[in-house]
Design a protein around this nucleic acid. Structure first.
Length: 745
DNA sequence: AGTCCCCCCATTTTT
DNA sequence: TGGGGGGACT
């Protein structure tokens, strides 16, 4: 691609960002404003017109997917593979650095990456070794604490406990956990970042080397950086005025896992020579959707400020549907999707977004019943599945007998008579002799301190691993994988597991073999790069890949089906038709986030993210009554709905007027548009008894749970009849007449 | 060691 | 409502 082409397809501000002289920039890129375009074109521009070598470029993202996409797009732009350019996730790049400089980082050469599950197991063991009651000190909480401290760049010695038992105990756990990791040569995700930061901090010459090498730094999704990531990139940037970050403070939705929106807010002060460029022209949504989004987000304080606009027409207004309950909501959504498809569109274009995963079930049921194809995002990822992790643990053990986490995982999986007590003994011995569990197991067996059966079991395991080792010595990765599955008897083990579950597990095992066969080690690695670690064996590479990449995008994405996902996982995606379900106070904004203003604002940003996913049509729906955790709740409509300018919103059913469904016989029947009954005609209706009961509008009633109240509204008939009562204590609620059991007061 | 049952809990997720 | 974890029982 020639130079002019790089700028041709860009708008004024995009071009300004891409062709800016080298320096420091914050590109405030609104949703759908073409930020990836800017990032990739910028890199192309740097190479073509500033003569920057790909070797001198470092581009950081948050997900492997984003990194892969960025590299692919630059390469297609430049029409050549770009060796030597470092494009990766924070974790991936940190890992690369630590592998190259393991000695300076004070790590084992073959340190092992601990994923979330490994980490939790380790914390549990640490708790046990400290004799702490797991009831009082839940492992999850301790894990969360440790990770949060690491994200902040804090070691146990940095934390002051102020005599607070909670902090004191957790710091103690943290310290013991750290020792355990150290001993076993294990590094968790947060540790990768923290170590990489300390590596440079403690080795100025190393830092200097990388500063000289990377003349241009680029960071994507900057609003999602946490403290340590920011510190790390800042250290690398130094005062060289050579960093371009792209982000959107309005789309910062990961504060709860350590992301600091402050990082983007203070960028221009931290990098005094920097300049901010706003990308506000949106190429995704209709005018109405953007106006709705702008209106909504304007309720947040302390924004960097940004207003999306489009050259496109306003399009349809945003639809608001008040459902009776979550089932009605699902039914409504399904009907709209059917309409959409009937108009010649596809299912894939439809997305149903919700705040929490629990909401997917009812939607799924409705889709299933109507036989619409769908796909639910989220859930367990490939490399996180138990059966896969077990095979990988065997493989790890083959590569490194001292990998204790893997040893523990598979020593008795499938069960071979090595019980908890024996494992504990091995663990104790390993600790006291300062050897690995593998060595301890051998020692324990040789010491003759264990009885015949246990001894045999231990010997059996040792022999198994050794035989496996011998059998796989010269095999290709996929064959090795296959042999491991067979010899470990994991296949047999899962064959015994009946039902769909076992079947799925077997299929996954097969898929692992396929993954091993088609595994392509890190593309873009330049083997002439002096900073590149001596290439790992394909085997090690594969295991690292499995640890660092959870296995996104497996399975059939190409089918035409409705997309269901949480609002969080929808970030970065776009769909012609979007439904935001569960627009209810307590659900969205979630009740856990109502206390602190900061968290409420994050909820609002999440809503903003949801709204800006929509390209053509947006439906907001809420349920007046909803079953949550087994009990019926009555939530008001979300405040976010009223924060959207009302002229952009079209209510599918007017709330304030008294209305009755056109087809009252059954809600499962199609209900095109509700017929409305005005107050006057309703009066005479109200004078009569409601739905064959002895209740009237305005009547005082008593409810078993909610106490005394006044009947203020009513709709529907028969089993579906609902009644609105304004309770003295609880405020106004809609109740199903059939269950309310109201007594005249 | 495996199974069953009861109790407790319940946002969001990537690496 | 339902899933996961822990404890008790077989």
């Amino acid at each position: 691609m020639v130079v002019s082409d790089i700028l041709d397809s860009l708008n004024e501000y995009q071009r300004q960002a891409v062709s800016a002289p080298t320096g420091s920039y914050l590109i405030l890129a609104g949703a759908g404003s073409g930020k990836t375009r800017v990032l990739t074109h910028r890199i192309a521009w740097l190479i073509q017109t500033h003569g920057v070598s790909p070797h001198g470029i470092l581009a950081v993202t948050f997900t492997n997917k984003a990194a892969a996409e960025m590299r692919a797009r630059i390469e297609s732009l430049m029409e050549t593979p770009l060796r030597g350019m470092w494009v990766g996730t924070f974790h991936g790049i940190a890992h690369r650095l630590l592998r190259a400089h393991w000695q300076e980082a004070k790590l084992n050469q073959n340190f092992q990456i601990l994923d979330g599950d490994d980490q939790l197991r380790l914390v549990k063991r640490v708790l046990a070794s400290l004799d702490l009651d797991e009831k009082k000190w839940p492992a999850r909480q301790a894990l969360w604490y440790i990770n949060a401290q690491k994200d902040e760049g804090l070691r146990p010695r940095h934390i002051e406990d102020f005599g607070d038992l909670y902090i004191k105990t957790h710091v103690q756990i943290y310290a013991a956990y750290e020792t355990a990791c150290e001993r076993g040569g294990m590094v968790d995700f947060a540790e990768l970042l923290l170590r990489a930061h300390e590596l440079w901090l403690n080795n100025p010459r190393l830092l200097q080397h990388y500063q000289q090498r990377f003349s241009q730094l680029l960071v994507d999704e900057f609003q999602d950086t946490n403290t340590i990531q920011y510190a790390w990139i800042r250290l690398l940037a130094g005062d060289r005025n050579n960093i371009l970050v792209v982000g959107d403070d309005d789309q910062s939705i990961y504060g709860w896992r350590g992301a600091k929106i402050e990082n983007i807010q203070k960028f221009t002060t931290d990098f005094p020579a920097s300049e901010m460029i706003r990308l506000e022209q949106n190429y995704r949504s209709t005018g109405s959707i953007l106006k709705a989004a702008n209106g909504l987000i304007s309720s947040n304080a302390g924004r960097l400020g940004k207003e999306l606009w489009t050259e496109a027409a306003d399009g349809e207004r945003i639809n608001l549907y008040a459902a009776f309950n979550e089932i009605d909501q699902a039914r409504y959504i399904v009907e709209r999707i059917k309409d959409w498809v009937a108009q010649g569109n596809s299912y894939t274009e439809c997305a149903i977004l919700y705040r929490s995963n629990a909401q997917s079930r009812v939607l799924e049921e409705a889709l299933l019943r109507s036989q619409l194809p769908y796909r639910i995002y989220g859930g367990q990822r490939f490399f996180e599945r138990m059966e896969i992790r077990n095979v990988l643990a065997y493989m790890r053990l083959l590569g490194n007998k001292d990998a204790d986490a893997s040893f523990e995982r598979v020593v008795n999986t499938p069960s071979r008579g090595i019980g908890d007590r024996t494992i504990e003994e091995i663990r104790q011995l390993a600790r006291s002799q300062n050897i690995s569990m593998w060595q301890a197991a051998i020692l324990l067996k040789e010491q003759g301190k264990v009885t015949g059966r246990t001894k045999n079991a231990i010997q059996g395991f040792i022999t198994l691993i050794e035989e496996m080792d011998a059998a796989t010595a010269d095999l290709e990765l996929a064959e090795l994988c296959e042999i491991v599955i067979q010899m470990s008897e994991l296949r047999e083990y899962y064959e015994k597991e009946r039902g769909e579950r076992g079947q799925a597990r077997l299929e996954n095992l097969q898929e692992l073999v396929t993954a091993a066969r088609t595994f392509d080690p890190d593309s873009g690695v330049d083997f002439d790069d002096p900073d590149e670690v001596a290439p790992l064996s394909l085997f090690d590479d594969f295991l690292n890949h499995a640890a660092l990449e959870s296995g996104e995008g497996q399975g059939d994405i190409h089918q035409d089906c409705v997309q269901l996902m949480t609002l969080h996982s929808a970030k970065g995606l776009e769909f012609p038709l979007v439904f935001l379900g569960g627009m209810e106070e307590g659900l969205f904004p979630h009740k856990m986030s109502l206390e602190e203003p900061g968290r409420l604002e994050e909820e609002r940003r999440l809503c903003y993210v949801g709204v800006t996913r929509a390209m053509q049509q947006l439906y907001l729906t809420y349920a007046e009554s909803r079953r949550i955790n087994g009990s019926e709740t009555y939530n008001r409509v979300s405040r976010f709905v009223s924060e959207i300018p009302s002229e952009m919103v079209q209510e599918v059913r007017a709330q304030q007027s008294i209305s009755r469904p056109a087809y009252t016989s059954s809600f499962s029947a199609a209900r095109p548009m509700p017929s409305r009954v005005n107050i006057n005609s309703m009066r005479s209706f109200a004078d009569a008894e409601l739905g064959g009961t002895n209740l009237k509008l305005g009547q005082r009633v008593v409810h078993a749970k909610f106490g005394e109240g006044v009947v203020i509204n009513y709709e529907g008939e028969g089993k579906q009849a609902r009644i609105q009562v304004n309770f003295n204590q609880e405020g106004s609620k809609w109740l199903m007449m059939a269950y309310a059991n109201l007594q005249p007061a």
